[in-house]
Structures are given as structure tokens and as C-alpha cells.
Design a protein around this nucleic acid. Sequence first.
DNA 1: CTGCATCCGCCTCGATACTG
DNA 2: CAGTATCGAGGCGGATGCAG
Lengths: 231, 231
Amino acid sequence: MTTRRSYNQYCGLASALNVLGERWTLLIIRELLMGPRRYSELLSDLPGLGTNLLSERLKFLVENEVVRQTDVQGTGFRLSYELTETGLRLRPAVLSLARWGMEFVDEVAETDVVRAHWGFLAVEAMIDTARVGAVGESYEFRVEGEIFHIDVADGKARAVKGPASNPAMVAVTDATTFVRIGSGRLTPLAAMVTGKLSLEGGIDAVLRCCELLGLEAGPAQTAAAGVAHRV
Amino acid sequence: MTTRRSYNQYCGLASALNVLGERWTLLIIRELLMGPRRYSELLSDLPGLGTNLLSERLKFLVENEVVRQTDVQGTGFRLSYELTETGLRLRPAVLSLARWGMEFVDEVAETDVVRAHWGFLAVEAMIDTARVGAVGESYEFRVEGEIFHIDVADGKARAVKGPASNPAMVAVTDATTFVRIGSGRLTPLAAMVTGKLSLEGGIDAVLRCCELLGLEAGPAQTAAAGVAHRV
DNA sequence: CTGCATCCGCCTCGATACTG
DNA sequence: CAGTATCGAGGCGGATGCAG
């Protein structure tokens, strides 16, 4: 029953894919990278995934100690699923894949699903560690109710859930616009002009944030900054 | 015909998996990360992969501009497949997955396949960029005829095919032993005792190389070094 | 011989229905 | 809410065919 198909290769990548390679598995991991989830939450955030497959995937991941289930009490109520230490170590690999896939994100289709909390992972994936500036500041993002921010300090940048204490920039937008900007199909400037994005904060902070995320602010960087400080 | 199954999610990871997520695809990418390959070479290095699937995967990857076909000569007879710029950008993601999967590498089974050139990718994945020392030197590896080395210079380490010009250490072993060491199931010291691994070079260089690859040389680091300088 | 295409049995996937 | 049971459609894997 637990015997699954294997690549039968004595190699790290093949072993990783023996665990993660089947359909939906890495998307389940993505969800759990943003915190523990209940069974029904996973089902509703991953449309197209059948309940039998979710059940089977979770069971398999638990067996392989990538995911664990946490009970509230000993009552047998299985409350939620969360990543183990091993599972959490997948973060760089998942972010790296997500970053690569950004350029394959097509224009949004009728049937496409978007979730606001995916923006968190998108931002984390977009952070260009080579372009972290010397300044220490935070940029806050509010995507359809989901709030998170980037903290830049000590030459490192990290994505954190929740609001920033004293953000140098605040961006408010919807999930679709967020992904379109991230995929390069829309510039922040263009999004602001159409009212899909609002930015608060200083010109310099906005430009540094765009730089950090590898975004061109718009047709002319200075033009974008000019708009930004008026909003 | 070319319409394939899609996750229908407006997200970088889902888009990446729409291209790479099907069975065998990432293993084909792994092969091509180590240079252009002919169709028949891919078939023989990926046992279990049917010829129809290989054909289909390659066609799909070419359509998505991850892989391109090149004629060896102008004859059009002998084709080889190689990664495009987009495909080459998968290197960090593949290495990251390979690194994660190392701990899932079980003891080698009867049915398991090993290829010497996989050692190259394994070494590249194991390099711990946080532990690159200040010294500039090279470590050479000879795995069943495949020769490659790590160059450490300017605080960076990179894996290179071919022999090193003036290696501070030379390791000779077989592919299975190589992977067993990489997965932590065997220490370099233990491998040397059983004659599966031979090391040449100074004590310090060997220890620095182990440090760089995140390996414990053996039960006692100094003991391993003691053996190393006698070989 | 290389580089595929075709055919076929089987297993996985995905949707729906059902149970505690 | 959290799964299990069932079943048709399609992807997978092996064998075979075939053209350059």
C-alpha cells in the first residue's frame, strides 16, 4: 500500500522526487510553508485537487516525516497539518522554483485561481539577496486582507507575516495585480495609474523596494517615484 | 495535442510545475545541466524512462524554450539536446532539491542505478557557500573515469568539469561510495579504511574540503586527517 | 544504428458519492 | 469537518515498428 513508484536512482534529486515528485505534492508543501493548515483549508485553496488525493498525499508526507499532524488534545481530533524540520528545509528549493516559474506565468485566464497569501511566497521568492541595501527599513504589503512585510536589516532581507512596525513603504493591491507585477507583465507605475495599486511612503524607499524585488518601477523609474510620493 | 494538464493557479510555483512537474522531466533537466546529451544517451542514463515519454518530454520542453535541439554538425543527422538560457536558470532550484533529497537517499538497493557523472551535481549541491574559506585552492574528484573539481577563490567555490591544474586534494572513488558519503551514510574515514576511497593531499586541505562539503571526515576529524596524509 | 511513433495493459488521477 | 470508497478517463511504462 505504501509501496510507491520509485525512480530507482542512487541520487539526491531522484530521492527528493520520489517524495515530492507526484502531482500536487509541492503545492501542498507551498501551502504549509505559510503555516499550519487544516484539511479543509487545503482542499479549498487547491481547487482541482480531489479529496482522495489530498488524503493520500498527506498520509505519504507524514510517513516520510515531511509533514506532521498536530492534535489539540488527545481527543483524536486532528486539527492541522504542519511541516516538520525536514519539510521546512524545503523553503529555499520551493522559493527557487517559484522564482524560476515567474516568467512562465501567463496572463491571467478565466479558469485561473488566485489566493492572496500566495503573494507572501512570491515576495519571498523575488527578494534579490545580492541587492539588499545598507539601510534598515521595512516595506509592508496588504493583499486582499493578507498583511506581510519585508524587513531589511544588517544587510539581510526577510519576509515576515503581519504588519510592519514602522514601514518605509506600504503597498495595497489585489492578489491578481500582485502576481502580474511580480511576473513582469505589469509595472508598478502602470498598476498605480489604473488604480490597482496604491503606494505610500517616500520616493527613495519605494525605489529601494523595487530594486530589492528586481522590479522596474515603470517606464521611467523617476516617473514612478514622482507618482509614488503623491499618493 | 499540446494542451496539457494545468494547475490553473496564478502563481510562480504552479507555473513552474506546469512545465517541470510531470514524471521524469526534472531528471532530464538534471542530465542536461551537465552538458548537451543525445537522445540515446538520455535513454541509457535514465533506465525506466520509456522512449515515447522521453520524446514527448523533450518536445514539450523545446516548445517551452527550456531545451533546444542542436545539430552536432550541419548534417542534421546527429541531434543533441541542450538547455536554453531559461533552462540553465534552473540550476539553483535543482541543486537545492538535490541537496534536500540527500537525506532521503537510502542504502543502495539491488535495483538502484548509479551514474558517475551524478557525482558532479552532488558535489555542486553539497557546497556550503557559508563555509567557503579564505584560501584559494582546488579539490579534484575522480569518480569512475569522470573527473571534476571544486575551485575555491575570492571567497567563492564552484564546481568545474575536468581536472584541476594544481589540486590541493585528489579523491578517487566509485560512484556508489561517492553518493553514500554525500548522503552521510558513510564517512570519508570509513570509506578509506575499506579501500573504497583514496585521498591524496595535505591534511589541512582534506579537512577544509570536508568542511566545505558539510562532511564529517570521520568519527574523529583528526583521526581522518591522520589517515589522509599517509595515503 | 539512432531517433522517434504507435500500440496496449496498468496504474494514477480527478470527480462524485458516501461515512463517522 | 475529515476523511474513505468507487469508477471512468487518461498518463505512464514496456514492447514493438519504422524511417533516415
